Computed example of a mutant assay.
Amino acid sequence: MAKLYFNYSTMNAGKSTTLLQSSFNYQERGMRPFLFTAALDDRYGVGKIASRIGLQADASLFTPQTDLLKAVEEELETGPVDCVMVDEAQFLTRDQVFQLTEITDKLKIPVLTYGLRTDFQGNLFEGSQYLLAWADELRELKTICHCGKKATMVIRVDADGKPAKEGAQKEIGGNDRYIALCRLHFKESVYS
């Protein structure tokens, strides 16, 4: 039975690494995964999913205008699709998450999504909000705060390393711009 999965976490929990490992597992068994990544994030090259430990794979790009259901249906014309995997799933729109449910429910293809739950201000991303509501299974990937507690939040820092309290929700960056923290240290950074 096909399901829609949302694998979520803060930065640096290994979301992309886990996606790439899952993709490899499908391929190793002679199956064909279809990968998507956000066009917004081109840090590692256009159409690339890359992990901090050096793994990478080519992927189809999605923008807010991309019809994911149509893209998968077109891909099915070239051969079987055994799984759909989406990196940077927080950047999906409500309509795109609905399209992923259609891929699961009507095309009977499992969909594995990977993304952040909240932004640097503690607010849900649109894609994450609807994945949390509509996914069949939620899986939290864990990482730790500098204090050793589980990190559940992320802050954005400026060039001087000070927490940013304002700004656009979507701003691409890595360890130079974002720090994963537990809720206590998130509140101390953002609200003090």
Rank of each mutant, 00 (worst) to 15 (best):
K165W: 06
L141Y: 00
G174A: 11
C145D: 03
L61G: 02
P64I: 03
S60C: 07
V86T: 11
T10A: 06
Q169R: 13
N175G: 15
F98T: 14
A2E: 14
I53A: 09
D95G: 10
N25T: 11
G79Q: 08
E137M: 12
K149N: 12
L141Q: 06
D41W: 13
L138S: 00
K142R: 07
K70N: 10
F6L: 06
A39E: 15
F24E: 07
L141N: 00
I155C: 01
D105R: 09
D41H: 11
R94L: 12
T18A: 14
L40T: 14
I144L: 15
V81P: 01
L181K: 15
D82H: 01
G161T: 01
D42S: 13
G54S: 11
D176G: 04
L116H: 06
E75F: 00
N123E: 15
K165G: 05
G45I: 10
T113Y: 05
V157G: 06
S189Y: 05
G115A: 07
A180W: 02
D95P: 05
G122M: 10
R94A: 14
K142V: 11
G173I: 02
F91W: 10
D158C: 06
W134T: 10
E77V: 04
G47Y: 02
L35Q: 04
Y5W: 13
K106Y: 12
Q121Y: 05
A59D: 09
R139M: 08
F62N: 09
M1P: 14
T17F: 14
S9E: 09
K70S: 12
I155P: 01
V111D: 09
E75L: 00
D158I: 09
Q21N: 12
F91V: 07
P64Y: 03
D87H: 04
E188P: 00
D58W: 05
W134P: 04
S9R: 11
G173K: 01
R29W: 04
D58E: 15
G79I: 06
R43T: 01
A133E: 15
D67V: 01
S23H: 05
D42V: 10
I179V: 11
N123K: 13
Q129S: 10
Q27M: 14
S128F: 11
S22V: 12
C147H: 09
V157P: 06
M31A: 04
P110Y: 01
R52V: 12
S9D: 09
E188I: 05
A39T: 08
L112Y: 15
Q90A: 00
K142L: 05
K149E: 14
P64H: 04
A133W: 02
L141S: 00
C83G: 00
K108R: 15
